[in-house]
Design a protein around this nucleic acid. Sequence first.
DNA 1: TTGTATGCGTTATCAC
DNA 2: GTGATAACGCATACAA
Lengths: 349, 349
Amino acid sequence: MTRSRPGRANLESVAAAAGVSRATVSRVVNGWASVAPELRERVERAIAELGYVPNQAARSLVTQRADAVALVVAEPDPRVFGDPYFSGIVRGVSTELLSAGVQVVLLMAQSDEELSGIERYLRTAPLDGVLLVSEHSSNDPIPAAMIEAGMPLVIGGRPMQPGLDVPSVDNDNVGGARVATEHLVARGCRRVGTVAGPIDMAAGVDRLEGVRLALGGDLPADRVEHGAFTQASGEEATRRLLDRVPDLDGLFVASDLMALGALRALRLAGRRVPDDVAVVGFDDIPLASATEPPLTTARQQTVLQGRTMARMLLARARPDLRLREAPEVPDVTPDRVVLPVELVVRDSA
Amino acid sequence: MTRSRPGRANLESVAAAAGVSRATVSRVVNGWASVAPELRERVERAIAELGYVPNQAARSLVTQRADAVALVVAEPDPRVFGDPYFSGIVRGVSTELLSAGVQVVLLMAQSDEELSGIERYLRTAPLDGVLLVSEHSSNDPIPAAMIEAGMPLVIGGRPMQPGLDVPSVDNDNVGGARVATEHLVARGCRRVGTVAGPIDMAAGVDRLEGVRLALGGDLPADRVEHGAFTQASGEEATRRLLDRVPDLDGLFVASDLMALGALRALRLAGRRVPDDVAVVGFDDIPLASATEPPLTTARQQTVLQGRTMARMLLARARPDLRLREAPEVPDVTPDRVVLPVELVVRDSA
DNA sequence: TTGTATGCGTTATCAC
DNA sequence: GTGATAACGCATACAA
């Protein structure tokens, strides 16, 4: 709190009311053992009566700690917040930080102007560290600024900026796409194509790379179309693909949302799924199990990603905090963690 | 920033480097006029060289200001973030605060545990004020805590807690529902029913009240069904309604999402819209214009609501800030502002 | 166990 | 126009 109303209590006034020194009050507030029960009692009563709450600004000034961490989401489209990917990360981050007694502060940037306001805030505000989730981050000024300011930072996703190396937690987009595509091949598909994501996004690039790895040399340029991770773009890309490769029999679509569009395009083109064309998506959004036919897809562990990011940051920014055991979270000492992506087989492939 | 790395520059070091006093550096940093151009030059160079950034904790400690405001969203379902209602408010709040040089900090509470962490944070962190958006807020501890702590607070929506009066900005749910229902009547509907929202949410209660006002005494209990503001619940409620009142010829649905369900239920029941049953929704979500037929609905001004909330808070918490003119934003001196809701007539009614 | 004293980095009030 | 200097509220090393 900052606006000190006329009557805002502080250590001094509590000390006076309890008839002890400021130091003793401080000890009680911070739970130090070495306080006589009787004094403690008096102090606690005084605190309650005066409604005393410690001033975090003053506390941060001396301790160099803030007990708060910023989670920055740099994304122009406000709909990211409805995205299960994002909400999983937020849930994971919140869970882990809550149990560590650290508050999560969400900062969202929908424009460059807002982004620079956020940058300013990050450099000056009392914060223990920063978590950054941004999809197309190749020209994001924040990583460099944080490094220069000495502010601990962990990135969610694959850092796109060459030169800076920042601790990060990513999903295995390459491996996931590879397994998904291998599933198509194992199923008997001979002419596999893909609706890939945008090439300015790490997830787009990496998933396409996974397809390449799975198919070896067998991915001619005409079997690749790019979409924008939206349903409409997936539908169109699929249509273009079918025009060029009419005998396509397997399709890896780089996101479930695009896969929804792909299913529609296939239906309209008279193809049966999976009999004529087998389809695999990526993300396992809730809708994926409700499509006709239900969608085989690669599932990312978004909550785990959030938890891992949080612990990685705390390990670096607040080594004094002892976190509770969490065997399901990978070791966060290395600067780069990649979480496995699992294939969920349903009827579409 | 809080973790002062070994080399973190402060006023002192900048002053030394520039050969001036701390006071002069402070004047330069804060843009005071009374500094000789030459000194100013030297100071600015030193600042750049040392990468000096003011410490906000120290600054807040003495100024009693923070240049930051919290926007608290108390809602268990993370999907609120995808909700156009919420994203409109965020956009409005952000716009207005950005131009005032105040940072928005988003705090979301998905559980009571998180809510109490947030409450702690709000009382202690350097913050100029708090904006609260919570739909079912009748037992939210935050308003009382903020009042006790003397922290300026503005609520979005209608405050549900008796006793506390807190400045608030609401949409005219009563008026909007009333106009929507009157539209049905004017259209010739004789047996109007409604799918209302939950009774523990102000929007649910108020919209139902609007229907009552429009119909005078003519709303028998069997023409009211309640849904949970979801599509599925809207579909079910409509089905129940049709079972009980087969000759229903007008339907006000308290949210567009529920209206989507209602349209489906009507179609399945073989009713034509609007010929057999005219339908009006509420919210004007993007999907509303894409339904078959396009949905007549009441539109809330969510961005304006956010902007109004922000200005109302700043007027109380930071009267020193001079905001730019904004004729479209209503006067924020009264403690309660209700924004008009406009009927958008499409084909469904 | 308790109290005293110092410093965290700023802003702001004075003299000069 | 500029420079000392006193707060701001707290934690903590040290003395008692």
